[in-house]
Design a protein around this nucleic acid. Structure first.
Lengths: 245, 245
DNA sequence: CGTGAGCTTGACTTGTTTCAACCAACGTGG
DNA sequence: CCACGTTGGTTGAAACAAGTCAAGCTCACG
Protein backbone atom coordinates (compact mmCIF):
# COMPACT_ATOMS: atom_id res chain seq x y z
CA UNK A 1 0.00 0.00 0.00
CA UNK A 2 1.56 3.26 -1.09
CA UNK A 3 1.00 6.85 -0.11
CA UNK A 4 -0.69 9.24 -2.47
CA UNK A 5 -0.13 12.90 -3.08
CA UNK A 6 -2.14 15.60 -1.33
CA UNK A 7 -5.82 15.40 -1.93
CA UNK A 8 -5.83 12.53 -4.37
CA UNK A 9 -9.09 10.63 -3.95
CA UNK A 10 -8.93 6.90 -3.51
CA UNK A 11 -12.61 6.10 -3.63
CA UNK A 12 -13.36 2.41 -3.32
CA UNK A 13 -10.05 1.66 -1.66
CA UNK A 14 -10.27 0.61 1.94
CA UNK A 15 -8.05 3.29 3.42
CA UNK A 16 -5.05 1.81 5.11
CA UNK A 17 -1.70 3.13 6.09
CA UNK A 18 1.23 0.99 5.17
CA UNK A 19 3.64 2.60 7.57
CA UNK A 20 2.40 1.13 10.81
CA UNK A 21 3.06 -2.44 11.92
CA UNK A 22 0.41 -4.68 13.41
CA UNK A 23 -2.03 -3.12 15.84
CA UNK A 24 -3.19 -5.11 18.77
CA UNK A 25 -6.12 -3.20 20.16
CA UNK A 26 -8.88 -0.99 18.95
CA UNK A 27 -7.45 2.15 20.44
CA UNK A 28 -5.17 2.55 17.50
CA UNK A 29 -5.70 2.98 13.87
CA UNK A 30 -9.42 2.87 14.03
CA UNK A 31 -9.83 4.15 10.54
CA UNK A 32 -8.33 1.09 8.99
CA UNK A 33 -10.30 -1.16 11.27
CA UNK A 34 -12.51 -3.62 9.47
CA UNK A 35 -15.62 -1.72 10.49
CA UNK A 36 -14.30 1.60 9.40
CA UNK A 37 -12.92 0.27 6.18
CA UNK A 38 -16.47 -0.71 5.38
CA UNK A 39 -18.06 2.52 6.59
CA UNK A 40 -15.58 4.66 4.71
CA UNK A 41 -15.26 2.49 1.65
CA UNK A 42 -16.01 5.18 -0.90
CA UNK A 43 -14.65 8.25 0.72
CA UNK A 44 -12.00 10.62 -0.43
CA UNK A 45 -8.77 10.46 1.49
CA UNK A 46 -5.86 12.80 1.35
CA UNK A 47 -2.37 12.25 2.58
CA UNK A 48 0.01 14.88 3.84
CA UNK A 49 3.67 15.20 4.54
CA UNK A 50 5.48 17.51 6.94
CA UNK A 51 9.19 17.81 7.70
CA UNK A 52 10.47 17.55 11.26
CA UNK A 53 9.86 20.59 13.48
CA UNK A 54 7.11 21.97 11.25
CA UNK A 55 4.06 23.40 12.97
CA UNK A 56 0.95 21.68 11.66
CA UNK A 57 -1.77 23.60 13.47
CA UNK A 58 -1.91 26.28 16.11
CA UNK A 59 -4.45 26.49 18.91
CA UNK A 60 -7.79 27.65 17.54
CA UNK A 61 -7.05 26.68 13.96
CA UNK A 62 -9.86 25.28 11.89
CA UNK A 63 -9.12 21.79 10.63
CA UNK A 64 -11.31 20.81 7.72
CA UNK A 65 -10.79 17.09 7.95
CA UNK A 66 -10.01 14.63 10.71
CA UNK A 67 -6.30 13.80 10.73
CA UNK A 68 -4.69 10.53 11.73
CA UNK A 69 -0.94 10.07 12.13
CA UNK A 70 0.49 7.47 9.78
CA UNK A 71 4.22 7.77 10.22
CA UNK A 72 6.45 9.67 12.62
CA UNK A 73 5.86 11.47 15.91
CA UNK A 74 4.04 14.71 16.62
CA UNK A 75 3.39 16.74 19.77
CA UNK A 76 0.18 18.42 20.88
CA UNK A 77 0.92 21.39 23.10
CA UNK A 78 -0.35 24.56 24.72
CA UNK A 79 1.76 27.69 24.74
CA UNK A 80 1.60 30.47 27.32
CA UNK A 81 1.71 34.12 26.43
CA UNK A 82 5.34 34.38 27.51
CA UNK A 83 6.46 31.42 25.43
CA UNK A 84 6.49 28.68 28.02
CA UNK A 85 5.07 25.53 26.54
CA UNK A 86 3.41 22.39 27.86
CA UNK A 87 3.29 19.33 25.67
CA UNK A 88 -0.01 17.60 26.37
CA UNK A 89 0.60 14.43 24.43
CA UNK A 90 2.84 12.83 21.90
CA UNK A 91 1.05 11.50 18.86
CA UNK A 92 2.32 8.21 17.52
CA UNK A 93 1.58 6.37 14.29
CA UNK A 94 -2.03 5.25 14.30
CA UNK A 95 -3.18 7.99 16.63
CA UNK A 96 -6.14 10.14 15.91
CA UNK A 97 -4.84 13.66 16.47
CA UNK A 98 -7.78 14.29 18.76
CA UNK A 99 -11.12 12.58 19.17
CA UNK A 100 -12.76 15.97 19.59
CA UNK A 101 -11.93 16.74 15.95
CA UNK A 102 -14.50 14.20 14.83
CA UNK A 103 -17.21 16.51 16.10
CA UNK A 104 -15.74 19.98 16.04
CA UNK A 105 -13.50 21.39 13.32
CA UNK A 106 -11.37 23.50 15.61
CA UNK A 107 -8.23 22.35 17.39
CA UNK A 108 -7.89 23.47 20.98
CA UNK A 109 -4.16 22.94 21.07
CA UNK A 110 -1.20 23.32 18.76
CA UNK A 111 0.31 20.35 16.94
CA UNK A 112 3.91 20.17 15.76
CA UNK A 113 5.79 17.49 13.91
CA UNK A 114 8.58 16.04 16.02
CA UNK A 115 10.02 13.91 13.24
CA UNK A 116 9.34 13.89 9.57
CA UNK A 117 5.65 13.08 9.49
CA UNK A 118 2.96 11.55 7.33
CA UNK A 119 -0.69 11.87 8.18
CA UNK A 120 -3.99 11.19 6.51
CA UNK A 121 -7.13 13.30 6.74
CA UNK A 122 -10.68 11.94 6.63
CA UNK A 123 -13.87 13.87 5.87
CA UNK A 124 -15.67 14.71 9.07
CA UNK A 125 -19.18 14.49 7.68
CA UNK A 126 -18.87 10.93 6.49
CA UNK A 127 -17.21 9.95 9.72
CA UNK A 128 -20.14 11.31 11.67
CA UNK A 129 -22.64 9.57 9.45
CA UNK A 130 -20.83 6.27 9.81
CA UNK A 131 -20.82 6.88 13.53
CA UNK A 132 -24.55 7.36 13.81
CA UNK A 133 -25.22 4.37 11.55
CA UNK A 134 -23.12 1.90 13.51
CA UNK A 135 -23.24 1.93 17.29
CA UNK A 136 -20.10 -0.21 17.39
CA UNK A 137 -18.15 2.68 15.96
CA UNK A 138 -19.53 4.94 18.61
CA UNK A 139 -18.22 2.56 21.25
CA UNK A 140 -14.79 2.69 19.67
CA UNK A 141 -14.70 6.45 19.48
CA UNK A 142 -15.91 6.81 23.03
CA UNK A 143 -13.16 4.41 24.03
CA UNK A 144 -10.55 6.54 22.30
CA UNK A 145 -11.94 9.63 23.90
CA UNK A 146 -11.91 8.06 27.36
CA UNK A 147 -8.35 6.97 26.76
CA UNK A 148 -7.31 10.50 25.86
CA UNK A 149 -8.94 11.75 29.01
CA UNK A 150 -7.24 9.12 31.15
CA UNK A 151 -3.87 10.09 29.71
CA UNK A 152 -4.53 13.76 30.38
CA UNK A 153 -5.50 12.99 33.97
CA UNK A 154 -2.42 10.87 34.39
CA UNK A 155 -0.29 13.73 33.12
CA UNK A 156 -1.90 16.14 35.56
CA UNK A 157 -1.22 13.89 38.54
CA UNK A 158 2.37 13.40 37.40
CA UNK A 159 2.91 17.12 37.06
CA UNK A 160 1.10 17.98 40.25
CA UNK A 161 2.32 15.31 42.58
CA UNK A 162 5.53 13.72 41.35
CA UNK A 163 9.15 14.81 41.28
CA UNK A 164 11.37 15.24 38.26
CA UNK A 165 12.80 11.72 38.12
CA UNK A 166 9.39 10.09 38.48
CA UNK A 167 7.90 12.23 35.73
CA UNK A 168 10.64 11.41 33.29
CA UNK A 169 10.66 7.72 34.12
CA UNK A 170 6.90 7.72 33.77
CA UNK A 171 7.07 9.36 30.36
CA UNK A 172 9.61 6.87 29.08
CA UNK A 173 7.60 3.90 30.33
CA UNK A 174 4.35 5.23 28.91
CA UNK A 175 5.89 5.80 25.49
CA UNK A 176 7.44 2.34 25.52
CA UNK A 177 4.10 0.86 26.41
CA UNK A 178 2.30 2.64 23.61
CA UNK A 179 4.95 1.70 21.11
CA UNK A 180 4.87 -1.92 22.19
CA UNK A 181 1.14 -2.08 21.48
CA UNK A 182 1.95 -0.96 17.96
CA UNK A 183 4.68 -3.53 17.53
CA UNK A 184 7.23 -0.74 17.40
CA UNK A 185 9.54 -1.99 20.15
CA UNK A 186 12.52 -4.17 19.40
CA UNK A 187 12.93 -5.98 22.69
CA UNK A 188 13.49 -3.17 25.16
CA UNK A 189 14.68 -0.62 22.68
CA UNK A 190 12.70 1.90 20.70
CA UNK A 191 13.20 4.70 18.26
CA UNK A 192 13.37 7.81 20.39
CA UNK A 193 13.27 10.98 18.32
CA UNK A 194 12.56 13.33 21.23
CA UNK A 195 15.02 16.11 22.01
CA UNK A 196 15.59 17.05 25.62
CA UNK A 197 13.49 20.16 25.10
CA UNK A 198 10.55 17.97 24.06
CA UNK A 199 10.91 15.97 27.25
CA UNK A 200 11.25 19.16 29.30
CA UNK A 201 8.09 20.60 27.81
CA UNK A 202 6.25 17.33 28.33
CA UNK A 203 7.16 16.88 31.99
CA UNK A 204 7.11 20.54 33.01
CA UNK A 205 10.81 20.96 33.76
CA UNK A 206 13.70 22.91 32.30
CA UNK A 207 15.93 21.44 29.64
CA UNK A 208 18.92 21.63 31.94
CA UNK A 209 17.22 19.70 34.69
CA UNK A 210 16.00 17.06 32.27
CA UNK A 211 19.57 16.68 31.05
CA UNK A 212 20.77 16.16 34.60
CA UNK A 213 18.14 13.57 35.46
CA UNK A 214 18.71 11.72 32.22
CA UNK A 215 22.46 11.68 32.87
CA UNK A 216 21.70 10.27 36.31
CA UNK A 217 19.51 7.58 34.78
CA UNK A 218 22.30 6.65 32.41
CA UNK A 219 24.89 6.56 35.17
CA UNK A 220 22.59 4.32 37.23
CA UNK A 221 22.23 1.92 34.31
CA UNK A 222 18.48 2.44 33.96
CA UNK A 223 18.42 3.47 30.32
CA UNK A 224 20.76 3.76 27.40
CA UNK A 225 20.28 6.52 24.87
CA UNK A 226 22.25 6.85 21.71
CA UNK A 227 21.62 7.92 18.22
CA UNK A 228 17.90 8.65 18.57
CA UNK A 229 17.23 5.29 20.12
CA UNK A 230 16.45 4.45 23.73
CA UNK A 231 16.69 1.12 25.46
CA UNK A 232 15.24 0.42 28.86
CA UNK A 233 18.04 -1.39 30.61
CA UNK A 234 16.43 -1.87 34.02
CA UNK A 235 12.67 -1.74 33.69
CA UNK A 236 11.84 -2.77 37.28
CA UNK A 237 14.04 -0.02 38.70
CA UNK A 238 12.63 2.52 36.28
CA UNK A 239 9.13 1.52 37.24
CA UNK A 240 9.99 1.86 40.91
CA UNK A 241 11.26 5.39 40.31
CA UNK A 242 8.17 6.29 38.31
CA UNK A 243 5.97 5.25 41.23
CA UNK A 244 7.97 7.05 43.87
CA UNK A 245 8.89 10.61 44.36
CA UNK B 1 -39.72 19.54 42.20
CA UNK B 2 -38.67 17.54 45.23
CA UNK B 3 -36.04 14.92 45.80
CA UNK B 4 -36.96 11.31 46.28
CA UNK B 5 -35.35 8.66 48.41
CA UNK B 6 -32.78 6.19 47.11
CA UNK B 7 -33.91 4.10 44.24
CA UNK B 8 -37.47 5.28 44.08
CA UNK B 9 -38.63 5.15 40.46
CA UNK B 10 -40.32 8.20 38.99
CA UNK B 11 -41.37 6.80 35.65
CA UNK B 12 -43.24 9.24 33.47
CA UNK B 13 -41.80 12.25 35.24
CA UNK B 14 -39.45 14.35 33.17
CA UNK B 15 -36.39 14.11 35.37
CA UNK B 16 -35.34 17.50 36.62
CA UNK B 17 -33.32 18.68 39.51
CA UNK B 18 -34.77 21.48 41.48
CA UNK B 19 -31.61 22.47 43.23
CA UNK B 20 -29.82 24.19 40.40
CA UNK B 21 -30.65 27.68 39.14
CA UNK B 22 -30.91 28.55 35.48
CA UNK B 23 -28.40 27.02 33.11
CA UNK B 24 -27.16 29.04 30.24
CA UNK B 25 -25.40 26.60 27.97
CA UNK B 26 -25.69 23.01 27.00
CA UNK B 27 -22.57 21.95 28.83
CA UNK B 28 -24.49 21.75 32.04
CA UNK B 29 -27.35 19.72 33.16
CA UNK B 30 -27.91 17.96 29.93
CA UNK B 31 -30.21 15.46 31.44
CA UNK B 32 -32.85 18.01 32.14
CA UNK B 33 -32.46 19.50 28.71
CA UNK B 34 -35.60 19.47 26.63
CA UNK B 35 -34.22 16.82 24.34
CA UNK B 36 -33.16 14.56 27.13
CA UNK B 37 -36.32 15.08 29.07
CA UNK B 38 -38.09 13.66 26.02
CA UNK B 39 -35.65 10.84 25.45
CA UNK B 40 -35.72 9.81 29.08
CA UNK B 41 -39.38 10.44 29.71
CA UNK B 42 -40.20 7.01 31.04
CA UNK B 43 -37.05 6.01 32.73
CA UNK B 44 -36.39 5.15 36.32
CA UNK B 45 -34.38 7.68 38.24
CA UNK B 46 -32.86 7.41 41.62
CA UNK B 47 -31.61 10.12 43.86
CA UNK B 48 -28.83 9.84 46.40
CA UNK B 49 -27.53 11.76 49.30
CA UNK B 50 -24.03 11.88 50.79
CA UNK B 51 -22.69 13.88 53.72
CA UNK B 52 -19.64 16.11 53.32
CA UNK B 53 -16.29 14.31 53.10
CA UNK B 54 -17.85 10.98 52.21
CA UNK B 55 -16.10 8.94 49.51
CA UNK B 56 -18.57 8.13 46.75
CA UNK B 57 -16.43 5.94 44.51
CA UNK B 58 -12.85 4.83 44.40
CA UNK B 59 -10.75 4.42 41.26
CA UNK B 60 -11.78 1.27 39.46
CA UNK B 61 -15.19 1.02 41.07
CA UNK B 62 -18.08 -0.18 38.98
CA UNK B 63 -20.86 2.38 38.74
CA UNK B 64 -24.13 0.88 37.63
CA UNK B 65 -25.82 4.07 36.58
CA UNK B 66 -24.68 7.42 35.24
CA UNK B 67 -24.53 10.00 38.03
CA UNK B 68 -25.19 13.72 37.74
CA UNK B 69 -24.54 16.18 40.55
CA UNK B 70 -27.67 18.00 41.68
CA UNK B 71 -26.57 19.88 44.74
CA UNK B 72 -23.23 20.52 46.43
CA UNK B 73 -19.64 20.11 45.33
CA UNK B 74 -17.59 16.96 44.77
CA UNK B 75 -13.98 16.29 43.79
CA UNK B 76 -12.64 13.75 41.31
CA UNK B 77 -9.11 12.73 42.21
CA UNK B 78 -6.27 10.29 41.73
CA UNK B 79 -4.31 9.01 44.70
CA UNK B 80 -0.70 7.81 44.62
CA UNK B 81 0.50 4.75 46.47
CA UNK B 82 2.06 6.88 49.19
CA UNK B 83 -1.09 8.89 49.81
CA UNK B 84 -0.35 12.02 47.80
CA UNK B 85 -3.45 13.07 45.96
CA UNK B 86 -4.23 15.11 42.85
CA UNK B 87 -7.70 16.52 42.42
CA UNK B 88 -8.49 16.38 38.72
CA UNK B 89 -11.69 18.37 38.77
CA UNK B 90 -14.32 19.78 41.01
CA UNK B 91 -17.84 18.69 40.17
CA UNK B 92 -20.50 21.35 40.50
CA UNK B 93 -24.29 21.14 40.42
CA UNK B 94 -25.40 20.12 36.96
CA UNK B 95 -22.17 18.32 36.13
CA UNK B 96 -22.08 14.86 34.76
CA UNK B 97 -19.57 13.06 36.98
CA UNK B 98 -17.76 11.91 33.88
CA UNK B 99 -18.80 11.63 30.25
CA UNK B 100 -16.91 8.35 30.01
CA UNK B 101 -19.44 6.81 32.40
CA UNK B 102 -22.08 6.96 29.71
CA UNK B 103 -20.22 4.28 27.81
CA UNK B 104 -18.24 2.40 30.41
CA UNK B 105 -19.45 1.44 33.88
CA UNK B 106 -16.09 1.84 35.57
CA UNK B 107 -14.74 5.01 37.08
CA UNK B 108 -11.09 5.72 36.43
CA UNK B 109 -10.76 8.10 39.33
CA UNK B 110 -12.05 8.49 42.85
CA UNK B 111 -14.91 10.83 43.67
CA UNK B 112 -15.46 12.41 47.09
CA UNK B 113 -18.15 14.72 48.36
CA UNK B 114 -16.74 18.10 49.33
CA UNK B 115 -19.97 19.38 50.80
CA UNK B 116 -23.16 17.64 51.63
CA UNK B 117 -24.19 16.30 48.25
CA UNK B 118 -27.19 15.23 46.24
CA UNK B 119 -26.86 13.42 42.97
CA UNK B 120 -29.12 11.58 40.59
CA UNK B 121 -28.27 8.42 38.66
CA UNK B 122 -29.60 7.54 35.20
CA UNK B 123 -29.71 4.14 33.57
CA UNK B 124 -26.84 3.74 31.13
CA UNK B 125 -28.63 1.55 28.65
CA UNK B 126 -31.45 3.98 27.99
CA UNK B 127 -29.00 6.82 27.75
CA UNK B 128 -27.07 5.00 25.07
CA UNK B 129 -30.21 4.17 23.16
CA UNK B 130 -31.38 7.77 23.27
CA UNK B 131 -27.92 8.72 22.08
CA UNK B 132 -27.98 6.51 19.02
CA UNK B 133 -31.55 7.56 18.18
CA UNK B 134 -30.91 11.28 18.26
CA UNK B 135 -27.72 12.65 16.72
CA UNK B 136 -28.30 15.97 18.50
CA UNK B 137 -27.71 14.26 21.80
CA UNK B 138 -24.49 12.83 20.47
CA UNK B 139 -23.35 16.34 19.67
CA UNK B 140 -24.10 17.43 23.20
CA UNK B 141 -22.26 14.54 24.78
CA UNK B 142 -19.28 15.00 22.52
CA UNK B 143 -19.27 18.64 23.52
CA UNK B 144 -19.24 17.74 27.20
CA UNK B 145 -16.50 15.26 26.60
CA UNK B 146 -14.41 17.80 24.69
CA UNK B 147 -14.95 20.26 27.49
CA UNK B 148 -13.70 17.77 30.08
CA UNK B 149 -10.64 17.17 27.96
CA UNK B 150 -9.98 20.88 27.55
CA UNK B 151 -10.20 21.36 31.30
CA UNK B 152 -7.80 18.47 31.90
CA UNK B 153 -5.34 19.93 29.41
CA UNK B 154 -5.64 23.31 31.01
CA UNK B 155 -4.90 21.77 34.39
CA UNK B 156 -1.83 20.03 33.02
CA UNK B 157 -0.41 23.24 31.58
CA UNK B 158 -1.10 25.06 34.83
CA UNK B 159 0.64 22.38 36.86
CA UNK B 160 3.50 22.00 34.43
CA UNK B 161 4.24 25.56 33.55
CA UNK B 162 2.86 27.99 36.09
CA UNK B 163 3.89 29.06 39.58
CA UNK B 164 1.91 28.72 42.77
CA UNK B 165 0.15 32.08 42.68
CA UNK B 166 -0.91 31.69 39.06
CA UNK B 167 -2.30 28.21 39.67
CA UNK B 168 -4.38 29.32 42.59
CA UNK B 169 -5.64 32.45 40.88
CA UNK B 170 -6.48 30.35 37.86
CA UNK B 171 -8.45 27.89 39.95
CA UNK B 172 -10.46 30.62 41.62
CA UNK B 173 -11.27 32.31 38.32
CA UNK B 174 -12.23 29.04 36.65
CA UNK B 175 -14.57 28.12 39.48
CA UNK B 176 -16.14 31.57 39.46
CA UNK B 177 -16.64 31.29 35.73
CA UNK B 178 -18.31 27.90 35.98
CA UNK B 179 -20.52 29.06 38.82
CA UNK B 180 -21.52 32.18 36.94
CA UNK B 181 -22.76 30.07 34.02
CA UNK B 182 -24.99 28.31 36.48
CA UNK B 183 -26.30 31.52 37.97
CA UNK B 184 -24.58 30.68 41.23
CA UNK B 185 -22.58 33.89 41.64
CA UNK B 186 -23.95 36.82 43.61
CA UNK B 187 -22.07 39.66 41.98
CA UNK B 188 -18.44 38.77 42.57
CA UNK B 189 -19.00 36.49 45.49
CA UNK B 190 -19.62 32.79 45.56
CA UNK B 191 -20.13 29.99 48.00
CA UNK B 192 -16.69 28.54 48.49
CA UNK B 193 -16.78 25.28 50.44
CA UNK B 194 -13.21 24.24 49.62
CA UNK B 195 -10.75 23.71 52.45
CA UNK B 196 -7.15 24.67 51.88
CA UNK B 197 -6.25 21.02 51.52
CA UNK B 198 -8.68 20.75 48.60
CA UNK B 199 -7.01 23.67 46.91
CA UNK B 200 -3.60 22.23 47.64
CA UNK B 201 -4.53 18.89 46.11
CA UNK B 202 -6.08 20.62 43.12
CA UNK B 203 -3.11 22.84 42.30
CA UNK B 204 -0.34 20.43 43.25
CA UNK B 205 1.05 22.33 46.24
CA UNK B 206 1.27 21.80 49.97
CA UNK B 207 -1.42 23.08 52.30
CA UNK B 208 1.07 25.39 54.00
CA UNK B 209 2.08 27.01 50.77
CA UNK B 210 -1.50 27.45 49.66
CA UNK B 211 -2.20 29.13 52.97
CA UNK B 212 0.67 31.53 52.41
CA UNK B 213 -0.35 32.45 48.89
CA UNK B 214 -3.95 32.92 49.91
CA UNK B 215 -2.89 35.16 52.78
CA UNK B 216 -0.84 37.15 50.28
CA UNK B 217 -3.87 37.47 48.01
CA UNK B 218 -5.93 38.72 50.89
CA UNK B 219 -3.28 41.21 51.98
CA UNK B 220 -3.07 42.49 48.40
CA UNK B 221 -6.82 42.99 48.32
CA UNK B 222 -7.40 40.51 45.50
CA UNK B 223 -9.92 38.30 47.25
CA UNK B 224 -11.86 38.17 50.46
CA UNK B 225 -12.61 34.86 52.07
CA UNK B 226 -14.79 34.42 55.10
CA UNK B 227 -17.23 31.92 56.32
CA UNK B 228 -17.11 29.57 53.32
CA UNK B 229 -17.68 32.36 50.87
CA UNK B 230 -15.21 33.98 48.52
CA UNK B 231 -15.47 37.29 46.76
CA UNK B 232 -13.19 38.37 43.98
CA UNK B 233 -12.29 41.91 44.95
CA UNK B 234 -9.92 42.72 42.10
CA UNK B 235 -10.68 40.53 39.13
CA UNK B 236 -8.33 42.24 36.63
CA UNK B 237 -5.38 41.86 38.99
CA UNK B 238 -6.26 38.26 39.71
CA UNK B 239 -6.49 37.57 36.01
CA UNK B 240 -3.12 39.17 35.47
CA UNK B 241 -1.59 36.93 38.11
CA UNK B 242 -3.24 33.85 36.63
CA UNK B 243 -1.66 34.58 33.27
CA UNK B 244 1.79 35.29 34.61
CA UNK B 245 4.21 33.29 36.58
C1' DC C 1 -13.66 19.58 78.85
C1' DG C 2 -11.11 17.32 75.62
C1' DT C 3 -10.43 16.20 70.73
C1' DG C 4 -9.75 16.83 66.05
C1' DA C 5 -10.02 19.53 61.86
C1' DG C 6 -8.57 23.66 59.91
C1' DC C 7 -5.74 27.87 59.57
C1' DT C 8 -1.50 30.73 60.46
C1' DT C 9 3.36 31.70 61.13
C1' DG C 10 8.40 30.96 61.37
C1' DA C 11 12.88 28.59 60.61
C1' DC C 12 15.13 25.48 57.86
C1' DT C 13 15.87 22.11 53.90
C1' DT C 14 15.37 20.50 49.37
C1' DG C 15 14.30 20.56 44.43
C1' DT C 16 14.32 23.18 40.55
C1' DT C 17 15.50 27.18 37.90
C1' DT C 18 18.57 30.55 36.10
C1' DC C 19 22.69 32.05 34.19
C1' DA C 20 26.80 31.05 31.97
C1' DA C 21 30.27 28.83 29.66
C1' DC C 22 31.71 25.29 26.73
C1' DC C 23 31.68 21.29 23.28
C1' DA C 24 30.21 18.40 19.44
C1' DA C 25 27.67 17.66 15.24
C1' DC C 26 25.73 19.47 11.21
C1' DG C 27 24.55 22.21 7.15
C1' DT C 28 25.49 26.32 4.48
C1' DG C 29 27.72 29.38 1.67
C1' DG C 30 32.00 31.58 0.42
C1' DC D 1 38.13 23.27 1.51
C1' DC D 2 37.23 26.15 5.50
C1' DA D 3 34.51 29.59 8.33
C1' DC D 4 30.35 30.03 10.28
C1' DG D 5 25.77 29.88 12.50
C1' DT D 6 22.44 26.72 14.43
C1' DT D 7 20.85 23.04 17.14
C1' DG D 8 21.51 19.94 20.87
C1' DG D 9 23.86 18.44 24.82
C1' DT D 10 26.82 18.88 29.28
C1' DT D 11 28.48 21.00 33.55
C1' DG D 12 28.88 24.14 37.56
C1' DA D 13 27.61 27.92 40.71
C1' DA D 14 24.23 30.92 42.65
C1' DA D 15 19.33 32.25 43.27
C1' DC D 16 14.78 31.07 44.16
C1' DA D 17 10.41 28.58 44.78
C1' DA D 18 8.28 25.27 47.26
C1' DG D 19 8.44 21.65 50.75
C1' DT D 20 9.11 20.06 55.60
C1' DC D 21 8.83 20.37 60.34
C1' DA D 22 7.01 22.40 64.28
C1' DA D 23 4.33 25.20 67.25
C1' DG D 24 0.30 27.67 68.49
C1' DC D 25 -4.40 29.19 67.56
C1' DT D 26 -9.52 28.89 66.73
C1' DC D 27 -13.61 26.64 66.29
C1' DA D 28 -17.09 23.01 66.20
C1' DC D 29 -18.46 18.89 68.28
C1' DG D 30 -19.26 15.21 71.40
Amino acid sequence: MTMRGNGSPTAGNPPTCGACPAFQDNLCHIFTDAMFADALANTTVDDHYAPARRSLWRAGDTIGRVPVICQGWAAASATLSDGRRQILSFLLPGDLVSAALIFEPVSHCAVDAVTELRYRAFPRGELQQALSRKPDLLAIVSRISADEKARADRLATDLGRRGAAARIASLILALAERLRKRGMMQGNTMDFPLRQHHIADAVGLTVVHVGNVLAEFRRAGLVEINDRSLTIADQPALRRIADEL
